[in-house]
Design a protein around this nucleic acid. Sequence first.
DNA 1: CGGGTGACAACGT
DNA 2: AACGTTGCCACCC
Length: 117
Amino acid sequence: MHDDARHRILAAVRALRRGETASYGEVAERAGLPRRARLVARVLTELPQGTRLPWHRVVGAGGRIAPAPGSPVALEQARRLRAEGHSVSGARIRRKPSAGLDALLWGQPGPRTGRTR
DNA sequence: CGGGTGACAACGT
DNA sequence: AACGTTGCCACCC
């Protein structure tokens, strides 16, 4: 894959702020790579262990933890999301209950709760 | 070139 | 809500 695409994806993830989440597809879109959700997943998979990137803020469409349920990475993501105010049950993530304020802070809704196209 | 795989996503049932 | 299907894309055999 292009190193350039990788850097743009990393930048998009780095831009995610505390409490915010974005789906793989959204991250791809923000990185200027529409329809490359799987590429985003691939890039995250290859992140080094101690990375400072907020990779845990990238979630599956509809607000789900994407990695295999029970896997170390999935558990760690759940832990971090809860630490940022979200509630996680199994793979399901329910966004921090402050949608109104969040919308002001984020400008855009988080992962789709309804249909998209 | 051909087939399999996955931290994806949209749709239909 | 939970699956199964299909489309997709980058990689790896």
